[in-house]
Amino acid sequence: MKYALKRILMLVLTMVIVSFLTFLAFELISGDPAEAKLGTEATPERLAALRHEMGLDRPFPVRYVSWLAGFVSGDLGTSYNYDMPVWELIAPKLEVTLCLCLLSFVLITAVSIPLAIWSYRWTGTAFDAVRTAFNQLCMAVPPFFTGILMSYFFGIVMRLFIPGDFPDLRTDFGEAVTHLFFAAICLGIPRAAMTVRMMRSTVIGEMQKAYVRTAISRGNDRRGVLTRHVLKNSLTSAVTFLGQTMAELIGGSVVVEQVFGIPGLGRLLVYSISNRDYPVVETLVVILAFWVVLAGTLADLINQRIDPRLRLGGAV
C-alpha cells in the first residue's frame, strides 16, 4: 500500500513537471495569443485591453498556476480554429480514441500471449525460422498500409463498413465498433508481433533457470512447469511491455485514425498541428503524456502485486 501511494505521488509529480515544461514550451513558440486573435485590427490600446482581459499581463508563474487550475477543473481555454472550448472539442474524440486503443490492446494481449507460448514449443525446429521470418514481416508492415488494404477489401469490395464515414459512437455503437475493430487490428499487428517476440525470449530465458529443474524433479509435466512456474515468472516482463504497448498504441492511432477516417484525438492532433492551433495541441500533449505516464504506473503497480521482491520498496 505504501508503495502504491509512493508510486501515485510520483505520477502526480511527473505530471506537474510535464505540464510545466509543456506550458513553458508553448509560451515560447506560440507568440502572443491576443495579437493572433485581433489580427489586423490590433492597435496598442485594444491589444493592451485584450491582454488584460485574457490575463496575459500577469507574471509567468501566476499564469501557469491559473492554467493548471483551469486544466484540473476542465477549463482548457478556447480553440483558435473552432472557436469553441477545448474540452468540448476533445471529450468526444477522447472517447473514440480510448475505445480504439483499448480494443487493440485487448486483441494484442489475447492473441500474442498464447501465440508466444505456442511458438516457444517450436524452438529449434525448421519451422522456427519460418515463424521468425513471419514475425519480422508482421513488424515490417506499417499499420497505415494494412489499413489501406483493409479498407479496400472489407470496405470497398465487401462493404462491411464505409471508409471515412464513422458512425456516431453513442447512437450507432455496433456499427462504430465494427469500424473500430478493423482499425484496431491494423494498429495491433506490429505490436502483437513484437509482444510475441519479446514474450518468447522471456519464456526461453526463464526455462534455463534452476527453479525449472526443481519443478521437474517434483514430477511436474511440461504444462505444470509452464503454468505453475514459468508463466508467472515471465509475467512481469510481459506487463511492463504491455504498459509500453498502451503508450505506443496512442502514437499508432494517430496514423490509423487518418486511414479509416475515425474522428479521434490523433486526427485532431494532426489537424491542430497543421493549423498551429496551440491551445488544442498544448492540451493534447498533456493528455497524451498523462496517458503514457499512467500506463507505466499501472504496469509498475501490477508488477508489484505479482512479484513480492518488488514490494520491498527500494526499487521504484
Binding site: I250, G252, I273, V281
Partner: peptide
C-alpha cells in the same frame, strides 16, 4: 527514460510543429 516512453511519432510531430 521519459522521452523513450513517449511514442516517437508523437514526439516527431511535436518537434516539427515547433
Amino acid at each position: 527514460d521519459a522521452l523513450t516512453a513517449f511514442p516517437s511519432i508523437l514526439l516527431a510531430l511535436l518537434v516539427i510543429s515547433i
